[in-house]
């Protein structure tokens, strides 16, 4: 069984927000909900300051704080390493949401559902079809699922996640500068493992002991 992971090459990233928006389209996310974001800041003092850009998403931690906090087992780590939410079990206590050091979870309620991209002008065809095709359950917590439906469909078709577009996460496909590489962390020969080794991949906030499956290289 593979364990899916991602390497984000911060050196390549130019903060175009393609990942963020493609993800919104892939999952028909309402306004204000993001499974992918880009953090922008800076470090250092003039004139030798530098810009910091970090694209972030659910880290699919193998020792996930959210899983630890979930009282019903709705949030769990799948065999392939993806941290998933079973929305039939979620009671909406948001303990996971508060627990996540990366703040990658969103509570989906009527208020979130009712938001319109063109406020006061009604929902667009796209928003309406999204609610039909990719519905979220009210009163549950939602987050990035590494596009597990794409991975599963792709694998069924005999494709390779990370290599074939139809088996890879939307944010990986959309990245115009190849800053995202997706693959199997358990395969010592995978491209992502090679990159992590060569470029000394770092996990975000390792000190929380969550063991993220997303690595950053610089």
């Amino acid at each position: 069984m593979p364990r899916w992971g991602m390497v984000i090459d911060v050196k390549r990233c130019i903060a175009c927000w393609g990942c963020t928006i493609a993800c919104k389209e892939e999952h028909f996310l309402p306004p204000g909900v993001f499974f992918n974001r880009v953090l922008i800041g800076e470090t250092g003092k003039f004139p030798s300051s530098s810009k910091l850009i970090y694209p972030i998403l659910c880290n699919h931690c193998s020792d996930a704080a959210c899983v630890e906090a979930c009282p019903t087992g709705a949030t769990y780590v799948r065999e392939d390493g993806i941290v998933a939410i079973d929305d039939t079990k979620c009671v909406g206590c948001r303990a996971c949401l508060v627990s996540c050091p990366y703040q990658q979870r969103t509570y989906y309620d009527q208020k979130v559902k009712d938001k319109e991209y063109f406020p006061g002008q009604g929902k667009t065809e796209m928003e309406l079809i999204g609610e039909k095709l990719y519905p979220f359950k009210l009163g549950t917590v939602i987050k990035c699922n590494f596009c597990s439906e794409r991975i599963e469909d792709g694998l069924k078709k005999g494709l390779t996640p990370g290599k074939d577009e139809d088996a890879s996460p939307a944010c990986v496909n959309i990245c115009p500068v190849n800053a995202r590489v997706f693959g199997d962390l358990d395969d010592p020969n995978s491209e992502i493992n090679r990159m992590i080794m060569e470029k000394k991949g770092k996990q975000l906030r390792k000190e929380f002991g969550t063991e993220p499956a997303v690595y950053y290289i610089d």
């Binding site: 009282p71 709705a74 009671v91 206590c93 009210l138």
Partner: peptide
């Protein structure tokens, strides 16, 4: 009342091992 799905609250009792909350 705070829960998103109060009717499912029973599920929290089902998994005492999972978390501090349950």
């Amino acid at each position: 009342l705070y829960l998103g799905n109060p009717l499912r609250a029973w599920r929290m009792i089902m998994k005492p091992k999972t978390s501090e909350l349950s």
